[in-house]
Each structure stands twice: as structure tokens, then as C-alpha cells.
């Protein structure tokens, strides 16, 4: 036993050092900046909080297009006969019991983005009683966590227009995207036997793939607080507004230029973004980058698993044969204790 324990310890220490060494060279690689370039044709949305009056026209427009009348909008994009029956079922708007008509509280109950509302407006009142609004929907990150973690590629980022899209026909409903999203965006239809993930796809599924006119929310906005366009143009616009109004915007930054590795949806606001529901701990590199680097370091070219496998086969086969030989010399009087004793003697001899 003593020998083997020492062996085991040696091996564990060896393995630990090997993995530890790998882990210790990680940080440089892991914390390098996100090198992903934006597609020049990436589309996005630009929301200027100082222009928003909180009318929620965008919320209702999105609700109408993507929830209530989703089926008729999608029929314009994909012919009904090309949709399978689960897709048809998916398109029927179904309200959870708590959201159905209630005579005692007849108004809509909207707290946050949910399976009905892919974008919402939230309000923040600062200590000077100034009101600030914020529009929350999918940020369409350049290196999205949800796409990175989805085990079956149900979530994809379009390489050209940059839209992070969802395919219910692939989704297994594991909800890892919800766990990983640092903006808390993907929502799930909890009260449904055939549930799907719900998130903004810039109206790609409902208004068509190449909508030049804009998304449901940008078309509905009466003040131009949220506008649709190519990300490069929107970014220029945002920078222009900052230089025209120095001091008006928080720290003169465009939120989404670098946050989480950069996002296709960008923001301007007069107050700190931490008050508007964006976490302070957001980094300039996507957490997807960190986890992918870790995974691909451990499994680089499959060297580690293949190497371990070959080593295991050799060692295990050798040990089994050794053990079997002892069995044979014992002429099938299989007493494991005597076998072990012989093993020990052998080891001692070596």
C-alpha cells in the first residue's frame, strides 16, 4: 500500500503541477484584449438616454410585432408551408397564467424583459430628481457569451450583419445562455410545454433579413432616441454628439464601444451606467473570450486527452496482465490477498 500511495501522490502532484503550470501561463493569453474585429456591415441600434421621453412606444411596437402578431409577420418572411408544426406552435402567443387578464389588475405587468417583451424601458430617478430612461434589449455583443456557450449552435452571430439570432429548431432549452449573459437578456417561456428562448433579433425573423427601414422599436420611436443603422455610422454619430455637447454625457464614453468586447447596440447617457442596470464589473473583454481560451488551452489539438488515453491504456493493460498472470500461477485459486502479496514482492524485487 505504501508504495502505491507514494506513487499515487507522485502522480497527483505531477498532474497538479502540469495543470497548474498550464493555468499559470493562462492569464497572459486569457487577459489579452478581445481581438475580434467588428464586421464593417454590422448593424446595430443607438439609444440616446437624454432624448428618451419614456413613452414606451418601442416596447409596444416590439410586443405587437414579436409577440402578439408574430405569426403573421413571420409568414411574410417564411411561407407557412415551409414551417414545421413545432415552429407553428411556437408562434402562437401564449400568456402565462399570471399575465392573463385579471379584472382586479387589468393593466400590463412589465417588470423586466420577459418572454413577451424583448425590449423594455426602465426609469432611474437620480438624487436631484432628474428622470433618466434606459432601453434594455439584447446588446448583440461582438463576442457573445450566449453564442459561445450554446452547446448545439442554436444561438449564432451573423458574420455579416452581426445579429445574434436564435433558432428554436436547434435549441434544447438548457438555458446556459441565460446563465452566461452578463446583460441578463435571454428569457425563457417557463409556463409553456413547448418553451423557447426569447431575445431581440433586431426583428430579423419578423421584418425580414435585410430590413433597411429599421427595427420595430426604432421605427416607433417618436423622438429619435433610438435609431437603427450600421454600427460604424452610429458610432460616428455618437462621438459627434459627445464632441458637440462636452460634459453632457457620462464620462464622455459611448457604452458598448468596448464593454464586453464591444456591442452592436450602443448607448449614450447622462448618468453612470451602473444606475441603469449595467453591471460595474463588466470588462472590456468578453467572458466568452476567457472561457474559450481556457477550454482551448486544455484541449489544444486534443493533445491532452489523447496523451492521457494512451498512457491509461498502457498502464491499465500492463496492470491487468500482471494481475492475470498471478491468477494463472495460482491455478485459479483466486485469492486477491495472495495476489497482492506477490505484487508487492515483485515491486520489492524491482
Amino acid at each position: 500500500m505504501k508504495t502505491s500511495r507514494r506513487n499515487f501522490l507522485k502522480m497527483s502532484v505531477g498532474a497538479a503541477t502540469a495543470i497548474g503550470a498550464t493555468a499559470s501561463i493562462l492569464p497572459e493569453e486569457v487577459f489579452a484584449a478581445d481581438k475580434r474585429e467588428f464586421s464593417p456591415d454590422a448593424v446595430g441600434m443607438f439609444y440616446d438616454s437624454t432624448k428618451c421621453i419614456g413613452c414606451q412606444a418601442c416596447v409596444i411596437s416590439c410586443y405587437e410585432i414579436n409577440f402578439v402578431n408574430r405569426q403573421s409577420y413571420i409568414d411574410n418572411v417564411i411561407a407557412p408551408e415551409d414551417q414545421n408544426f413545432i415552429e407553428r406552435e411556437d408562434l402562437i402567443p401564449k400568456l402565462a397564467p399570471e399575465d392573463q387578464f385579471n379584472p382586479e389588475r387589468p393593466w400590463l405587468n412589465v417588470q423586466t424583459n420577459d418572454y413577451r417583451f424583448r425590449n423594455i424601458i426602465q426609469k432611474y430617478v437620480d438624487p436631484e430628481d432628474n428622470v433618466h430612461f434606459i432601453k434594455h434589449q439584447c446588446m448583440h455583443c461582438n463576442h457573445p457569451e450566449c453564442v459561445s456557450v450554446c452547446p448545439v449552435t442554436a444561438l449564432t452571430k451573423d458574420p455579416v450583419d452581426g445579429v445574434v439570432d436564435y433558432d428554436a429548431n436547434r435549441c434544447i432549452g438548457c438555458r446556459y445562455c441565460q446563465i452566461a449573459c452578463p446583460f441578463f437578456i435571454p428569457k425563457f417561456e417557463w409556463k409553456r410545454a413547448v418553451p423557447k428562448i426569447v431575445k431581440c433579433d433586431m426583428c430579423k425573423s419578423t421584418l425580414g433579413a435585410n430590413n433597411i427601414a429599421g427595427t420595430g422599436c426604432t421605427n416607433a420611436c417618436p423622438t429619435g432616441a433610438v435609431i437603427y443603422g450600421k454600427r460604424v455610422d452610429l458610432m460616428k454619430d455618437a462621438k459627434q454628439r459627445i464632441s458637440n455637447n462636452p460634459g453632457k454625457y457620462f464620462k464622455d464614453i459611448v457604452y458598448g464601444e468596448y464593454e464586453n468586447g464591444g456591442t452592436d447596440v450602443i448607448y449614450l447617457s447622462a448618468v453612470d451606467y451602473k444606475h441603469l442596470g449595467f453591471d460595474e464589473r463588466m470588462e472590456h473583454i468578453s467572458f466568452a473570450e476567457t472561457s474559450e481560451n481556457l477550454i482551448h488551452t486544455i484541449y489544444k489539438y486534443g493533445i491532452a486527452p489523447i496523451g492521457v488515453f494512451i498512457a491509461l491504456v498502457t498502464v491499465i493493460k500492463g496492470n491487468i496482465n500482471k494481475h492475470k498472470n498471478h491468477d494463472d500461477t495460482d491455478s485459479h485459486d483466486n485469492n486477491p490477498n495472495t495476489t497482492i502479496d506477490k505484487n508487492k514482492k515483485n515491486k520489492g524485487g524491482n
Partner: peptide, 17 residues
């Protein structure tokens, strides 16, 4: 939809899951 785990075109080596 779990059969998608066996469809090579849908394999996702970035995902630990």
C-alpha cells in the same frame, strides 16, 4: 432537439456544456 448533439455541423467546441 437533443439529437443535435450528434449532428456534427452543430457541434460547438467553445461550449463546455
Amino acid at each position: 432537439n437533443s439529437y443535435n448533439f450528434f449532428v456534427p455541423s452543430q457541434w460547438q467546441f467553445n461550449s463546455a456544456l
